[in-house]
Amino acid sequence: MADTIKGDLKRLNLNMLYSLDAILNSRTLTEAGQRVLLTQAAMSIALRKLRGQLHDDIVQYHAGEHRFTPLADALRPQVRQFLWEAHRLFNLSVSFDPATEERSIRIAAPEYLETMFVSKLVRSLRVIAPRVTVHLVRWAAAAPGSVFERAGADLMVVPAPLIDDRMESAYLFDDQIACIAWTDNGVVGDALSSRTYLDHPHAIVEDGDVGAYVSDRRHATLLARRRIVASAGGLSALPLLLIETDLVATTSMWLAQHFASLLPVRVLGSPFGQDDISIHAQWQKHRSGDPLIQWIIGELRRISMILPHRGKNGGSAIGINTIYGKDKR
């Protein structure tokens, strides 16, 4: 059987591999066809050919459900990596000219980094690399490294505790943890100790709470002991839960400053001190030679270096006045 498969694989062309990749990463043949701009009928023909050449069903569809074979599950990451390698081979370049080259990059990051940092990169690229398109892809805290296979990400920006050891990594800058409350919250003072932090009721973001980004055991314990009475579906709703209430929220220092500049909330001294959370860029090892990847990493570092506030380890933490060009002094 192995010899037969090996012989038949010689007849697979690149277009069939694109069809196979689409099938392996889709729930239906219609969805797979949309990925490669083929009709469902054409995808059915492609699936039939692939089944014959691989001597495997690959996937079974029944009553709206789909089930991949073990061979399909094993092929999925390898086919995706092969296609990335083929794309890199046929688009090989040893340099990158931001002013003239037309390229595309897909970046994955937690929502707060997407809001406060990657968005600044987009604005910068519109000036110095106008022909580079940036696509922000959905990020999952439970399996951050999956964005490379699942969403075709080229680069991932993550806090250190979520680094995927299988990927290449580069330090970018530091962030810190901060607390915020409604401006007229008379119950909360200007700063919170560990005891008063636990005494107050808290609001959190349901998916993307800052607790996922903390590696210090003491801080993780403190966050785990919060008395949570409200949760938001996204970051934009978090400060709204605080207004006209006695609630406290814990978030990134960047976001705390951002919220305080726009809404009636204030930044509090927190029991987390000045401990930094380092932020890193990650990419697949086989993409290390791509000049666009390296140029984007360099641009991320450049942006972080011109931001005024720095963490104790020398990495920069962003200030809202810098991002929006405001001076509130």
Rank of each mutant, 00 (worst) to 15 (best):
D73I: 02
S194W: 01
L292Y: 01
L14E: 13
A108V: 05
V248T: 12
I296Q: 00
P271A: 15
A220D: 04
N185T: 08
I58V: 10
A42C: 04
K120Y: 10
E102Q: 11
S316N: 13
L222R: 10
L83D: 03
M305W: 11
G152W: 00
R131V: 10
G208S: 07
G211Q: 08
L75V: 00
V229A: 12
L14A: 07
E85F: 02
G269C: 10
L54F: 12
S44G: 13
L50T: 01
G269I: 07
G315P: 05
M43R: 07
V79C: 01
D190I: 02
D56W: 08
R226Y: 14
Q284M: 14
Y213T: 08
N313Q: 11
D164I: 06
V118W: 00
K326D: 15
D8A: 13
T28M: 06
V79L: 03
N25S: 12
A140P: 01
R80I: 01
G211K: 07
G314D: 06
F117W: 11
F259G: 06
L198Q: 12
A191V: 11
V205H: 05
W139Y: 13
A317H: 04
I228C: 15
L17V: 05
V205L: 09
V118I: 14
L198A: 14
R301A: 08
E101V: 06
P201A: 12
V36Y: 01
F117K: 06
W295Y: 13
G315C: 03
A256E: 15
E299M: 13
Q53P: 00
R88L: 10
M1G: 11
A232L: 04
P264I: 03
A256F: 09
P239E: 10
P308L: 12
T251Y: 07
V36T: 02
L71R: 12
Q81N: 04
M43Q: 06
T322F: 14
M305S: 14
L162W: 02
S304F: 07
L172H: 09
E149N: 12
I323C: 15
F68L: 11
D190F: 03
F173M: 06
D56H: 05
L136I: 10
I107M: 00
R67P: 03
V248R: 09
Y213L: 15
V118F: 00
S44A: 11
E85G: 01
T245I: 08
R123S: 14
Q40L: 00
G319I: 15
S270W: 06
L83H: 04
I107R: 00
V188R: 08
R195E: 13
G298S: 09
T39P: 04
R48G: 07
I277W: 02
S119K: 10
K6A: 10
N91K: 03
A109D: 04
T196M: 09
R131A: 15
L300N: 01
V137K: 00
A237P: 00
L192G: 10
S104V: 06
H66S: 12
G319C: 12
D21I: 00
F82S: 02
A2C: 01
M16Y: 04
Q34L: 07
P161Q: 03
F96G: 04
N25R: 12
R106Q: 02
L263S: 08
M1R: 05
D73S: 05
I303N: 03
Q34P: 01
D97S: 14
W254T: 13
W139L: 05
D175W: 03
A178K: 07
S93C: 09
C179M: 14
W182T: 04
N91Y: 02
I279L: 10
